[in-house]
Structure formats: C-alpha cells, structure tokens
Design a protein around this nucleic acid. Sequence first.
DNA 1: TTTGAAATATGACCTTTGTCATTTTTCAAT
DNA 2: ATTGAAAAATGACAAAGGTCATATTTCAAA
Lengths: 234, 234
Amino acid sequence: MHPNPSSCQQCAQRFNSVFCKAREEHVELINDKKVCNIYKKGQLLFNEGAYPFGVFCINDGKVKLSHQGDNGKEQIIRLLKSGDVLGYRALLSGDRYSASAIALEDTQVCFIPKDIFVNVLQHDAGMAFEMMKVLSDELHRSEIKLTHLAQKPIRERLAETLLFIKETYGIEADGITLAVKLSREEIANLVGTATESTIRLLSEFKKEGMIELDGKKIQILKPKQLLATANLQD
Amino acid sequence: MHPNPSSCQQCAQRFNSVFCKAREEHVELINDKKVCNIYKKGQLLFNEGAYPFGVFCINDGKVKLSHQGDNGKEQIIRLLKSGDVLGYRALLSGDRYSASAIALEDTQVCFIPKDIFVNVLQHDAGMAFEMMKVLSDELHRSEIKLTHLAQKPIRERLAETLLFIKETYGIEADGITLAVKLSREEIANLVGTATESTIRLLSEFKKEGMIELDGKKIQILKPKQLLATANLQD
DNA sequence: TTTGAAATATGACCTTTGTCATTTTTCAAT
DNA sequence: ATTGAAAAATGACAAAGGTCATATTTCAAA
C-alpha cells in the first residue's frame, strides 16, 4: 500500500462517496490540498476531545468510530469502509470530536483540511445536498439503533449486528466468511452488552448451526435464520 | 391561538430556527407558500411510513417524535419546541417517515412544501450550512443517548431525562415546575424503560427530596443532586 | 518450538429490570 | 357532586443479563 494513492479525480471511491455529486473543479481543489496517509491496524485517526482540522476520507480499509462511556467502556457507534468520510460531525457542529476513530486494519486515508472542505460545501450545492443525505442517513441509523437498544433483547441485537457487519464489510471469496476481524469485545461494544454475553450467544448461534466460529473468523451459515433471529420489522 | 400567525419575516422564532441564516428573499418565498395550522394535543402531524411532502416548523407549542418499536412499544426519540423544524430527516434521505410526530399540547405549526424547502436549501448556502449543523447536532445527541442507553443504569438515565426535559422545555414561573405535561409512560418511553420502573424511581427521587410530584406536574427541587445522580461526564 | 500474555470460553451467582396482578388516585364527562 | 375509565402506585415474582472466578485456547514474540 502506497501512502500516496491515485488522484481524487481517478479515485475508485469517488462516485461511491459524499463527493459523488461534487463538480470537477471542486474535486481538483480537494485533490490539490489533500494529504494521504496509511494508518496501521489499531492506530488512532483522531481522539475524542480533540479539535477537528478537517475530514478524513477512507480510500482503502476499515475504521471504527467509538465513544468512551463514563466507566471507560467503549461503545462503537459506526463502522466505516472505503469511500466513507469521517470527522464531519464535529466539524459541522463546531464541536470537538465526541468519538475516537481507530483503524481496524491497515487503512489508507486522505485528509482534507477544514477550510477546503467547508469552502467546497459552500459553493457546491450538489455536494452540500449529498452531505445532508449522509447526515440524515446516519441520523436514521442511529435512531433505529437507539430504539432497538431500548427495546430488543441481546440475542436479537447480536443477530442484527452480525448482519450489519456483513452488510457493511461484506463477505470473503468463500461466500460465507465475514470480511473483517473483530474481537468478541468489539462485537459486544457494537451490540451494547457485556463481552461474556456476546461470547455465550455466539456459542449458542454456533450450536444452532447459524454461524461457524474459528478464532476471529465468523462464517454466516444460515443468513435467513439469522435474520429471523434478529426479528426485524423494517 | 389563530391558525394564521404573523409572517415568517416577523416570526418570533425566525432567528431561533434553521432559517436564521436564510436570505430575506428566501424567507419571503417560504412565507408565500407556507400553510399554517393548529394541532390539538394528541393530534398527529405525520405518521411513520407516510411520504413526506414538506417540513413542519413549530411556531408555538410542543411535539414529540417517536418510533413504533417492533412490539408496538413507543420510543420517543426527540422532543420539539417552538422554532424547531421537523420532517427533514425523511425528506433529505428520500425516505418515508421513520417516526411519527404528535402534538404534546395545542401547537401552532407551519407547513413548508418540499419543493420550496429544497429549492431554498439549494440556493442559500447559509441556510444549507445551518441545516447541516442541525443534523450534526441531532446526530450527536442521538449517539450520546445510544451510548448511555447501552451503558448506564435506569436511575441515571431517568435523572438525565428529567434534566433534558428541563433544558428543552424550561421551567414555569415558579422557577421549579417543568413546563410540560408528560405521562409516566411517556417519560418511560423517553428513558427507554418500563413504565413501572419509571414510576418507582420517580417515587424514590421524591423520597430523596430531589423532586416533587403532583399529578403530571413535576418540580425539580434539587437540580444539583439530580445532576449528580445522572452521573454525566460530558 | 517454546512460552506467556491476551483473548476466548464456561460456570456460578447476583443484581437489575421487566412483568403481572392489584389497589389507589386522578380527572374529565355526565 | 357523581362516576367510571385511565393513569399512577405498589407488591410479588420472574427473567434477562451482568459480574466474578476460573479454565482453556490462541497467537505472536522470543
């Protein structure tokens, strides 16, 4: 992986990102000012409490965004993938970061300085609309998750989370293995439960034949049954 | 309360709303096309699953926004007050409403048709930015609430909710009574717990001298102690 | 290959919270 | 004022899920 990937104009993620509707001249402007970097697995992109100086655009890799709960317990609030932008929430609110971003694997990231990003947003209605759509979609996801957290048992939420991981990061070539390695603790912090409960339920799912476990590898054997277990209405 | 209040240009909420940065000509445009209405307490502004045809701007009153959980249990996800706009999430995502809006008291609401609202957003960068700020702030609030729901006991969440209600709707002339009437069930659906648990804990809070209860009237006697009970870090 | 720390797994137990049943209160309609 | 239904309050109990202790396994560094 090279720290300086292709230009934004040629970027494979361009039409898969919030910049999909941005005008050519603005993409060029961003390309001129962007700074690319590789973050190793476990490395911090930014830390809760810091001031945002721009946004991060994931070119290739995976990142988790998490809050530090009061007792120090991590709550993972988003999973980011190639084409996703992060850091915009704090920037647009005029806040400090309320969450930390950590690479889940070696990840290539481009940094776009605040003034450039804001400037383009101000002069490109298409991109501004796309930004609003991203924000609205995130808000939607967050509110649904909030409701499920308040109302659904852990078993259902874990099943839902496994399907969410599958939807977000996809499946490996074998057609069944989740294309990301997460610890049991991370899965628990995504579900919003204790690590032991997650381990226990994963074992149950395995006993019931819905999944297969092999270290951090998780295989989805019966997606239909998992979906039924998640008990989703919408 | 008259169904047709002052013009948008003269509206008391104008600089207290997402339109605060909108240009004069755009406010005029909105004023020309808006349709105002009074919703009685308990009346539906819009229903989960319906298509949005515009946004609602609260001129005077209080509205709750809630999801219907799978088991039919309500989860209140936002409380709206004068100057707040609602219905934008679905509209900007291009979705149907994912939540229902219900008046908590007799409420004066102006409806702004979709094409006007979108048109102004497209031609008014100031307002578009303000819209992004509103979305970002909501996203922030939602993600914090999500973390607390996953990690904090009900006692702390109830204390936090009472303070949130106070912050949102304020206090009556006596300086201590919450300026909104919510049923125990509604408070429970805001906290994300069973009605009985909420009733029990409110009684505890009363016994401990933090609040006073008189029907639906709730008085905050010791805000400091309530804040300590909420155990907030941020 | 060994080895030791970290991650995973499992059991026992206890706390929190939800559910159900019942009583009491409130409040609006008559 | 009366009354009846809805809301609030309270108790008893059950279930879900968290915590703690203790194996067992994994996996990377030596």
